[in-house]
């Protein structure tokens, strides 16, 4: 069963992966980090990514039809994708059996990365991280 570090190492094996982190979006805490961070500082990146994740998770506009809030432990949003000229960011919300507000953050090179593949793999990793 993988822990946080094994999960992050697995994320870094994805083609084009530059860095990855497990972040709590209520506090902005980086629970684990690996590789590079945009701007060089994982803690700052975590706090900024947490703001983005919080907005997506809290606003009704982004929730699924007919389910405005948290359905049990299910976050209303699965993932967030941000692209810029040279990189992608994929933020994947993690469902846990205890009360939490955690997401996986993968930073991906646009030249070498495969966004569709990364998105699928990150979802699988989020599941294995908490279910074993």
């Amino acid at each position: 069963m993988p822990g946080i570090d094994e999960c992050l190492v697995e994320a870094m094996r994805l083609p084009g992966a530059l860095g990855a982190a497990v972040v709590d979006w209520t506090s902005g805490l980086a629970l684990g980090t690996v590789g590079e961070a945009p701007g060089g500082d994982h803690e700052t990146t975590a706090a900024e990514a947490a703001e983005l994740a919080r907005i997506a998770a809290e606003h009704r506009a982004f929730a699924p039809e007919g389910g405005a809030g948290w359905d049990g432990e299910d976050p209303p949003v699965e993932d967030l994708i941000v692209s810029n000229r040279d990189t992608y960011h994929v933020l994947r919300f993690v469902r846990t059996t205890f009360d939490s507000s955690v997401f996986l953050h993968l930073w991906l090179s646009r030249a070498d990365g495969n966004l569709a593949l990364a998105r699928i793999r990150l979802g699988e990793m989020a599941g294995r991280l908490v279910l074993g």
Binding site: I4, V22, G32, T96, R128, V130
Partner: peptide, 21 residues
């Protein structure tokens, strides 16, 4: 808790590290 299959390793780490901070 992890070895007996009650809590996944990642779940324990997330929950415990969060509780520690």
């Amino acid at each position: 808790l992890v070895d007996s299959g009650r809590v996944a390793e990642g779940a324990l780490e997330l929950c415990h590290t969060g509780a520690l901070f």
